[in-house]
Design a protein around this nucleic acid. Sequence first.
RNA 1: GCCCCGUUGGUGCAGCGGCCUAGCACGUCGGCCUUUCAAGCCGGAGAUCACGGGUUCGAAUCCCGUACGGGGUACCA
Length: 502
Amino acid sequence: MTTETPARVRFAPSPTGVMHIGGLRTALYDWFLARKTGGQFILRIEDTDRNRYDPDAEWHIKESLKWLGLDLDEGPEIGGPYAPYTQSERLQLYQDAAERLIASGDAYYDDTTPEELAALRQRQQAAGQPPGYDNRGRYRTAEQIQESRDKGLEVVVRFKVPDHGELQVEDEVRGRLKFDLSLLQDFVILKSDGFPTYHLAHVVDDYEMGITHVIRGEEWIPSCPRHVLIQRALGISTPKYVHVPLITAQDGAKLSKRHGAQSALEYRDAGYTPDAVLNYLALLGWSPGDDTEVMSRSEIASRFEIERILSHPAKFSAQKLEWMNQQHIMKADEDELAEMMMPYLERPEEEGGLLEEIDRPIDRSIVRAMVPVLRERIKVLPDVIELIDFLFVDEVQPNPEEMIGRRMDEEMVFTSLNASIQALESLETFDGEAIEQALRGLTQSTGLKAGQLFTPIRVAVTAKRIAPPLFESIEVLGRERTIERLQRGLAIFSNYAGNRDD
RNA sequence: GCCCCGUUGGUGCAGCGGCCUAGCACGUCGGCCUUUCAAGCCGGAGAUCACGGGUUCGAAUCCCGUACGGGGUACCA
């Protein structure tokens, strides 16, 4: 492995809503790079838009990172050498930077009102011209600005973009990007409320915090020259830029509510494991270079390379995610898997948990015992519920009709039930192996085929047509309850068969 | 409109000038196994590598156009 210098990377979301999986994927790449190079993974909250601020968002972001297991080295609350890590607490820094830019002639105060801007835009549209600021504020005098201030008009600070020239930016994914500066208008760096815009704030912070790699979505490419311009004017270094491709929905459009779950925690609630989501997301925009798909987080972290990040957008496939989840469930440690299943079983019935009548906390030893046969039968964790609920209730309600399987008659049902009751009663040790031996032996003595023998038993014991393997189920249910159910099944079936004959 | 990025089977990737009669995975179809359901195993269908020009002895791979898709064009990030 090549020796790499430790990367300092930051995940810098804006607290404006739930954490989208696109953002999560970016955080993932940050984390992988930090872990692989032995660097730091930093969380920075970019709350410079007071209008869109959502007080719940920060919690949601942290909860999402925690769930995925992306541990932070620095961030709000936990702190770090560059605290604070919330931009609204760092305003002085941005204001100082803006003043420095004004002093050097790279920025200026602008009192153009929103109304004027709107009117300008309208005129441009009417004239068929491209909309954009016309840099009119460049020519304001200090006196004019003061006058506006006295009148109570709002003043912003704009960055002065060179009128012409080409600016090149090195992107780690796409190579050299070129931009024509004559097409870029002067842009706001400090808003009239004293808050910085993204452009100023993140450039200042990335520098202050020693960020080495800026990993962000490709929607930032067009404004990248602004960032480099600010850096040059401030005389600070440019970090490595890593613009990662977008994640789109099946129809190629931006992922949204319409396309199924979008927030990280929704996937948690739906029963996806963190490892599977992490694995799947990692592959959406990156590949290890060979055909390996199912990987542990440490394997991904060690194989992760910026050079292998893709430059084209990836479509999110819920189907493949399901498969990935299944793969991780099948590879998981059995004790851990049982623990992972518990919350889904325990949650209230109306939230998809076990029936209300079943007392909580539920018996985890039952779940644990069934894990080996459950794991390859579920795609998401809550799938276990309908597979094993019969083990938790006192009584089941088998449908006698279902006891008559394919190529079976009533007589066979009676034979199966009677013979199995007898066989199980006389068993010395009641474990899966003994149960299997005893019941399989019955095919000889009764002349029934396996399917004919087991179908009535399955229905009587589980009241299901689709159930986990029988022998394990019976072992976990216990001799007494199994026999009880077989007898009750027999009674129900007799009643059914009797009525049917009449 | 203008600017930027992208384009390999339905989907996600491999491919970084000859080993490609384009490989893997998901999905799909058929079979085997089998106490149900899964899992597993075997096999099939599915791509003129968006299109058109170059460069080269040779291009999915390099260059240029076109088309299509996406992104940006805010006192939002």
